[in-house]
Design a protein around this nucleic acid. Structure first.
Length: 757
DNA sequence: CTCTTCCAGCTTTTT
DNA sequence: GCTGGAAGAG
């Protein structure tokens, strides 16, 4: 039995005991949010609610697993594993597989990861003969994703005047066409992308009320973690499911909303009161994780944001050390200093390596940290970056598995039709695709009907294609009989993948083979566990989950005493005794794209808040004064976030005294190679003042000599000369405060004085 | 059709 | 600094 009285504070207990009706839990960082969720679920179970009637949605697989583990220790493994607990994507993909036929998919539909989606977009852009410089897969996918997350299907996209106008303004009017074909080809391939998993669930619930009702009845209790990170699509699914009984409990912290870039709506949490009148509000404000210094410093940061739910997190822990700021001459030295500090602290204070985390804004920063740690023989584990499942050799083998299960999977087919080499080149694939488009069929269908389209390929090519087709068909037959492991093993062998990798003796080649072996082990593990537990051990079942897996899901036991390296985003929800936040520099953190709009900047600040509040005892922040970025040297300024912390909580950072106006004017931007901050000579040209409240952005090619321009970094300046052509066009500009600079116009964000009326 | 070499673009963050 | 695509030679 669960001891609520002794293990929970009053507010936490409220949140746990009030199981009926809508409940909103506002949970500050480190306030025992997970504890509340797990106890609430344990409480429901102890009241006799069957586990399979509880739906608990988390944001990451990791969070789900963690919670399951903790519930299992409270109520036993058997009970815990019957819970419907997982990410939105994994839970609803499960439901969609059951209901797929209603929507015109098969239950074996494939899930495209972002790379697959981008590849498909690339290919559509090519088919439509569009400029791939204008229609960049990333951008286009972003637009489509945004649309889907707002439940705008391709047809509605085309009909929305607002969206069409926005695309036209961005000079990308064909996105709507691309969306249409993208969706068409996904359907043809029996494929859903990540966003479809949510969109199609919404469509399912909208168009089939009896199915909605089935699930409304099934889930008596619904819990949602990280509610501030839900997007519209997720929000609506929850709302519909909870409509009948309204036993919904959402937990979140608006101060930790860091996913608006992928459609998360902070309003969802703010509007809970309107959606569920009569809701119960629980505020968890006591931080049990961090020292008062850290909590107060974090508060001093987040209070600068305008948009937030009023709350005051506090800590009754000891005051603790001040937050240390370390400056390094270079990114390399930054790594060196961090490694040295970790080593020193671990020696002096008997801290274990797993008490340390190094957090960074971008994955690209990990490599330099890795190198430094390796030199000092400090063990580390690294999350994110190129995940296991994104490695080429793994994707290749998975593509075989996918095609075996779903022959219409276009991206899988294109990936392996000529890997290993079997003499089927791009020309042939293009021809097949043309035929497929013409007959509105998948490439596989064309492959099966080559005789009906004579003359498309030569007899020799046709033979090769047929051979490939038979290879896959053989695998499909095999998959029906054998378990996932036996099938996969045979595929790896007979497809030639293993032979192909065996010819490569380089360290990379060896590591690729090891990765294949690791995947085989994972499949074996799946098959055996499934068999032992009486579940389906065939290939489709294995594949179901794989697309939604990430690196973070494969924690290895040998990883237990290592320093953790990860992005701040993936650190959310975790805690470490000692946290190093590295790369505290302008244009890195806050990211340069975020520095210009207030909303984006607030999100960066929340991200910083998340980073700080990961720490229990010590925070060390570091910045470098030179850094390699995309192979170029840049000279970053320390992040404004350092100066935003109340200096009483800091040590080692000298806050430069700047005038108020100066601080407001300074919107640090990109430092280009040409723009080394050197000693600025006083200008000998008179530059009039610029009214910064009336600036108008201009593009580089409208710049002419003599023009007065305004640069976010350097302020007002006069264009002296221009040289270079096209994208290499440069302007020599004399700035009032910074002297002469050469700007690459392609990069420089320039403004001119706008109309004064 | 395949292999090699060269170049451009990229870096926000994740299911 | 790395990756993926283009281009050109065999």
């Amino acid at each position: 039995m669960v001891d609520f009285i002794n293990e929970l504070n009053e507010n936490q207990r409220e949140a746990v005991v009030n199981t009926e009706g809508p409940t909103l839990v506002i949970a500050g960082a480190g306030s025992g949010k997970t504890r509340v969720l797990t106890y609430r679920i344990a409480n429901l179970l102890s009241k006799g609610v069957p586990a399979y009637r509880i739906l608990a949605l988390t944001f990451t697989n990791k969070a789900a697993r963690e919670m399951q583990k903790r519930i299992a220790t409270l109520v036993g493994q058997g009970n815990a594993s019957n819970l419907w607990m997982g990410t939105f994507h994994s839970i609803f993909s499960k439901i969609l597989r059951v209901e797929a036929e209603h929507l015109g998919y098969t239950s074996n539909f494939t899930i495209y990861d972002s790379q697959d989606s981008k590849n498909l977009i690339k290919s559509i852009v090519k088919d439509l003969r569009l400029d791939d410089k204008v229609y960049k897969p990333n951008d286009v996918l972003g637009r489509i994703s945004m649309a889907k997350n707002n439940l705008v299907v391709a047809q509605a996209y085309a009909q929305s005047a607002k969206i069409v106008a926005a695309d036209q303004a961005a000079k990308k009017p064909m996105i709507t066409e691309i969306y249409k074909y993208y969706q068409l080809r996904c359907r043809q391939s029996d494929v859903m992308d990540f966003d479809d998993l949510l969109l199609q669930t919404n469509i399912l619930f909208r168009d089939f009320p009896e199915i909605l009702e089935k699930y409304q009845k099934k889930f008596d209790y619904i819990l949602v973690d990280e509610y501030q990170d839900t997007n519209y699509s997720q929000y609506l699914i929850i709302k519909k499911l909870a409509e009948q009984h309204k036993n919904i409990c959402v937990v979140g912290d608006d101060a930790q909303s860091i996913y608006s870039f992928r459609g998360a709506r902070i309003e969802n949490i703010l509007n809970f009161r309107n959606d569920y009148p009569g809701y119960k509000l629980c505020k968890l404000e006591q931080n049990y994780r961090s020292t008062t210094t850290i909590v107060d410093a974090a508060n001093s940061i987040i209070s600068r944001n305008k948009e937030q739910i009023p709350k005051k997190t506090f800590s009754e822990n000891e005051e603790g050390d001040k937050i240390r700021v370390m400056k390094a001459m270079s990114d390399k030295e930054e790594g060196f200093q961090v490694a040295q500090e970790i080593f020193r602290i671990s020696q002096n204070e008997q801290a274990e390596f797993n008490d340390f985390a190094i957090l960074y804004r971008t994955n690209a920063q990990s490599r330099i940290m890795e190198e430094a740690l390796r030199k000092r023989n400090i063990p580390y584990k690294i999350y994110g970056g190129l995940s296991f499942y994104q490695r080429k050799e793994i994707k290749d083998l998975l593509a075989y598995l996918r095609l075996t299960v779903n022959q219409n999977d276009e991206e899988a087919l294109k990936r392996i039709i000529n890997y290993p080499k079997r003499g089927i080149g791009d020309t042939t694939v293009d021809k097949l695709k043309e035929v497929a488009l013409k007959y509105n069929a998948s490439i596989w269908t064309v492959l099966c009907n080559l005789n009906k389209v004579p003359g498309v390929v030569s007899a020799a090519t046709a033979a090769k294609l047929t051979h490939f087709r038979q290879l896959i068909e053989g695998f499909t037959e095999l998959a029906k009989e054998e378990n996932a492991y036996d099938t996969t093993y045979r595929i790896a062998k007979t497809s030639g993948i293993i032979d192909d990798l065996s010819t490569d003796d380089t360290p990379e080649g060896v590591s690729r083979k090891e990765n294949i072996q690791e995947l085989l082990n994972a499949v074996k593990d799946f098959s055996e566990t499934a068999y032992n537990e009486g579940r389906d051990d065939k290939l489709p079942s294995f594949l179901e989950g794989v697309a939604l897996l990430t690196d973070q899901d494969s924690e290895k036991p040998e990883d237990n005493n290592k320093v953790t390296l990860m992005t701040i985003h993936s650190a959310k929800g975790l805690e470490f005794e000692n946290v190093f936040i590295v790369g505290m520099e302008e244009d890195l953190f806050p990211a340069q794209q975020s520095a210009y709009t207030p909303a984006a900047l607030e999100e960066e600040r929340r991200l910083f808040y998340v980073a700080l509040t990961r720490a229990e005892k010590k925070v060390v922040m570091t910045y470098a004064t030179t850094r390699y970025k995309n192979g170029n040297v840049v000279y970053p300024q320390p992040s404004r976030f350092i100066a935003e912390i109340d200096p009483v909580y800091l040590e080692g950072f000298f806050t430069p005294t700047r005038s108020r106006e100066d601080r407001q004017l300074q919107v640090p931007g990109r430092v280009t190679r040409m723009a080394k901050p050197t000693l600025s000579p006083q200008p000998n040209v008179e530059i009039p003042d610029v009214d910064t409240s009336r600036l108008q952005a201009i593009s580089g090619d409208t710049v002419v000599p003599g023009m007065i321009i305004y640069h976010p970094n350097f302020g007002a300046g006069k264009v002296i000369t221009l040289d270079g052509l096209g994208v290499n066009k440069k302007a020599k500009v004399l700035f009032a405060k910074h002297g002469q600079k050469v700007l690459l116009l392609k990069f420089a964000k320039l403004y001119v004085q706008g109309d004064t009326n």
